[in-house]
Design a binder for these strands. Structure first.
Length: 220
DNA sequence: TTGCGGATGGACT
DNA sequence: GTCCATCCGCAAC
């Protein structure tokens, strides 16, 4: 993918190489990666690459913004009310997708973390597009690279993620996350979570410092 | 550039 | 009937 020249210097991971047809050298994150503390996973997902197999080609993007929803004691979390039909996948063991429908319009994609029964997950809020951007542009109805995947609803629209992906194994071949195999060379910024009314002060949102692919600007 | 409200539908009480 | 881990367009500045 071509990045705008001016922005390129600002993006710490601009040199990541990954093509639609070849993921050689990249390793899928394993169950043991996901079955750890939610906050840890939320931080470590930054810089990793989300891949969705479109049948024909692979849509992918670098994860640039995450939010942790650690579990049942967090009033902002879907799991706070206990297990229901809607959130049941969130209570399974880490390493699967939790996709939910909200606001009558949008899906949001989460990665379930930790042990079975915890109800903890990481919301993927923003990506830096890598491959399959033509499809993303079509799905989103815009050609603006900065408006393709900078928001949880935008990501699912761009990637075609929907309720079919709810509960899907993230170590399978349809939807998964890979390691870019490089030493991380960015700083992580902590901030408050977006769009919630309860338990708002926790610093459970994580972004890559300096990366312009974020959903909303930092508030100080 | 910021802030507000409508769209939209399914899950939950 | 109410709530909602969102997005977009438009009004007002």
């Amino acid at each position: 993918m071509e990045l705008h020249k001016k922005e390129e210097r600002k993006i710490p991971i601009s040199r990541t190489v990954f093509s639609s047809n070849d993921s050689g050298g990249f390793k899928k994150l394993t169950k043991s990666f996901y079955r750890r503390n939610c906050i840890t996973v939320a931080k470590e997902l930054l810089g990793k690459i989300l891949v969705v197999n479109n049948g024909r080609l692979k849509l992918s993007g670098i994860i640039t913004e995450t939010e942790a929803y650690p579990g049942k004691n967090d009033e902002a979390s879907h799991s706070y009310i206990g297990k229901t039909k809607r959130n049941e996948k969130m209570f399974e063991a880490g390493g699967i997708a939790y996709v939910y429908f909200t606001y009558g319009n949008h899906f949001c994609f989460n990665v379930v973390t930790g042990k079975e029964g915890l109800g903890s997950a990481v919301l993927i809020r923003s990506l830096q597009p890598l491959t399959g951007t033509d499809i993303m542009k079509k799905n989103r109805g815009t050609t603006d690279i900065y408006n393709l995947t900078t928001g949880p609803g935008k990501i699912t629209q761009a990637f075609g993620i929907n309720r079919k992906h709810n509960g899907m194994d993230l170590t399978g071949d349809i939807i998964y996350i890979i390691n870019n195999n490089k030493k991380e060379d960015f700083n992580i910024v902590r901030s408050k979570r977006i769009g919630i009314k309860k338990n708002r002060d926790k610093l459970f949102r994580f972004t890559i410092e300096g990366n312009p692919f974020i959903s909303v600007k930092q508030k100080k």
